[in-house]
Simulated assay, not measured.
Amino acid sequence: MKREQLAIFDGQYVRDHLSYPDCIRVVRDAMEALSASTTRQLLRTMIPLGSGRTFAQMPGALGEREMFGAKMISVFADPSSPGLRRHRGVVLLFEPDEGEPVAIADAEEITHIRTAAATAVATDALARADARTLLIVGTGGQARTHLRALPLVRDFDRVHIWGRSFDKAVSLAAEFAAIGAEAVSDLEAATSRADVICTLTTSAEPVILGAWLRPGTHVNLVGSSGPGPVEADNALVAMSRYIADSRASALDAAAEFLVAKQAGVVTDDHIVAEIGEVLLGRVPGRRSADEITLYKSLGHAVQDLAVAAHLYRSSLS
C-alpha cells in the first residue's frame, strides 16, 4: 500500500510520531540486519565546502526487496555558537516494487533521535546490568535526546551532566529534574564515579581520559563522526573492548581509533565486533563485570532509512 502523493515528514512530525521505544526497536533491528549482511550500503561521502561547511551523502538499502534511499545533509558550524554544528537535510525514501520515491523526512530530527536510540541499544547490550550512574558529557541537542533514551534501558539513580559551560549544564539538568539530573563541574571526578558515559561534544581534543575510568565502565563515543576531532585519549581506546556500529565505517572515520592506530597503540583487530554482531549473539559483548566496554557511534544510513520507513508505514495505518 502506498500514498498517492509523496509523504513529507517535517521536524515536528518526526518529533510527534517517532517514540523513543519504537526508535530503539527499529534501530536494534537495523543494526542486526547490517551485521547479517542483509542490507546494502556504501560508506558516506563528504564534500568540503569551506571552513566549517560540509555536504554529506549516505546511500543504502534495507534489503534486496526492501525500502532504499539516501540521507543527504549539510553539516555547518553555527556562527552564533562557536563549537556547535547543525545537521540539516533530508532522508529520501523509495519503495522497492516500482522504485518510486514515497517519502521525504527531516534528517536533523531523525538523526537526533535515532543516534540516541542507537546509543541506548549499545548500552543495553554492553553496560553492566547494575549500572546506576550515568554521565552525559555535552549540553547540546544530542544530550537532550540521550537523556530521554538511556533511562529506557537502565534504571539510573544518578544522572550527571558536564559541559564546558557550567551554566548550560545547570540549565539542562533543570530540564531533566524528573530523572534526578544534576550538573557537575569536575569531569574527572564524575568520570571516576560513572557506570555509563556518553560523550556528545564537538571537542577537537580528548575530554575523557582512560586513567579516569573505574573498572566496569561502559563508554559511548558519539560526538566525533569523522577523522580529526577526538573525545577520548589513546589509553581509553587501548584499554577498552572496542565495538563499532560498522567495522568498515570505523576503519574509515572513527577518529579516536584512527589516532590510536597511527600512534601504534592498537591495530585493526582491536575492533572486536559490530554492535549488530553482539546483538545477534555472534560475538560476546561484555565478558566480565570489570571489563571496560566502548561503543563507537558514527551513524549509518540503514538507521536513518529504517526510521524513515517506520514513519512511512505508520502513516499508512
Rank of each mutant, 00 (worst) to 15 (best):
S35W: 00
V266I: 03
I104P: 04
I197Q: 00
L126F: 00
V184Q: 11
D78I: 10
G50L: 06
T133F: 07
D268K: 13
A177Q: 10
I104E: 03
G50E: 05
A204Q: 14
D233K: 05
R154A: 08
K168H: 14
L187A: 11
G299K: 04
A306I: 09
L294F: 07
P206F: 00
D106F: 05
A301L: 04
I197P: 02
A7K: 11
E95S: 07
G228Q: 04
A232E: 11
S297G: 04
K71P: 05
G281C: 02
E175D: 06
E4V: 15
A260T: 06
S314M: 12
V302F: 06
A306W: 03
G276L: 00
R282D: 00
D29S: 15
A181T: 05
R86Y: 11
R282C: 00
A131Q: 06
N234K: 03
A70S: 13
P21H: 12
G83W: 15
L34R: 00
L258N: 05
R114T: 10
E182V: 13
L152M: 14
R44F: 07
Y295H: 03
R114S: 07
P215I: 13
A173E: 03
D233E: 10
L258A: 02
L134Y: 08
V121W: 02
V90L: 08
T119D: 09
S185V: 15
S297D: 03
V137G: 09
